[in-house]
Design a protein around this nucleic acid. Structure first.
Lengths: 205, 205
DNA sequence: TTGCAAAAATGAACAATGTTCATTTTATTT
DNA sequence: AAATAAAATGAACATTGTTCATTTTTGCAA
């Protein structure tokens, strides 16, 4: 069955090629300017072929969003070397913020845009495994912080969700250009500065 | 010149009528299903007429976003009666969260979607007066808290931005359905519960 | 009242989009 | 070499935002 093996490989390759074209356009021009025709043109295939490999546009962007989580997961790996949970929590926020600010469109796709979630709905998948996994890392870290005596009198999941919201809110306001429009004195550094304020508070809790 | 007065009034009326149709559709079906043709149909005018009164789709949604800020401003009015700045800050968060959760699409339009900001770009307006005003209320409140001795060792703008990010992040994760997919134990109440954790922390700062 | 000019409203037409599917091309098997 | 299966194609469709020459309505002077 060597031939069917090769065929399966070729199918995977073409799927990956479509995604690479989609990602290039997406990062360069955003989700709206990434049309199926553009993707097909970029990789020298026809429109129809794209639809042979992906159900629709949402499926493509769900696949891209998954790639984004793989990348974020890779950047989280440095955290394994940080043994102190509180210090690890701080570093996790920094990694998260850097990822978001350096890949704003990808971040938007992963945590704000509707496309990936609509794909899950259409596919009747109940769970969002990428998000679940990432939030799990945060929850575990907060749990270890609690074991170490931090966050006294706080509940695990609401506290973890609050911390996630904190960093998510900062980078989302930045990405959606809402922080710029608000006439802050030092707009270039506001996200980092605000995160510092948060760390100061966490140190005391 | 009574006639030109009436004409001006009629123009305003029709503009308001278009917006009311747009808002109805927008709240019912979201921004993508709110097409110019749908709006025109809903108010029994032609497509072309809509374009006589609004430059493009972004202009319509910028106008709706401004209405949203007027509404939010109205709901903030109860805060004038809260004299203690720290208590007022807490209540402000609650009002903000309630507004967002009860008007999710409007909130999205005001603080996440691109349409209103692209209108400002096209119109070459530098400033986002609605956002500026709202953030100003928050900044002033935090400033008064500092005068009262709270937030010792913290910087005003980064702290205000951090608080804004906190509540913005929570409601945004909720609205974009990211909080649901993450398998939290009590998804119905997670936003309120997380805000409670935040308040506990603020009490000590 | 009638005719005329200005203002307002119209909807057909255009380009671009996501999507489908009968047809054509290519690859594999007999 | 012929027959079959798999893969790729692109024309066609419905829907979108947008434009603009044309039609309709309005206000006013003769």
């Amino acid at each position: 069955m060597a031939i069917s093996d090769r065929k399966a490989r070729e199918k995977e390759d073409l799927k990956a090629l479509i995604l690479s074209g989609a990602k290039k356009l997406f990062v360069e021009k955003g989700i709206e300017q990434t049309t199926i025709r553009n993707i097909a043109d970029a990789i020298d295939y026809s429109v129809g072929t794209v639809y042979v490999y992906f159900k629709d546009k949402n499926a493509i962007f769900h696949a891209l969003h998954t790639q984004g989580f793989t990348q974020l997961g890779g950047e989280f790996k440095v955290l394994f070397h940080v043994s102190d949970p509180m210090e690890r929590l701080r570093a996790m926020g920094r990694v998260y913020i850097n990822f978001a600010l350096q890949n704003p469109d990808m971040y938007d796709l992963m945590f704000n845009l509707k496309a990936p979630m609509e794909f899950l709905n259409d596919a009747k998948k109940e769970e969002w495994s990428e998000g679940k996994g990432t939030f799990g890392v945060l929850r575990t870290t907060v749990e270890q912080c609690m074991t170490d005596g931090h966050f006294k009198g706080h509940n695990l999941e609401p506290t973890a969700f609050m911390i996630w919201s904190m960093v998510h809110g900062m980078v989302s306001l930045e990405i959606s250009k809402r922080s710029l429009g608000v006439n802050i004195q030092q707009p270039e550094t506001i996200v980092v500065a605000a995160y510092e304020e948060f760390l100061k508070i966490m140190d005391r809790v």
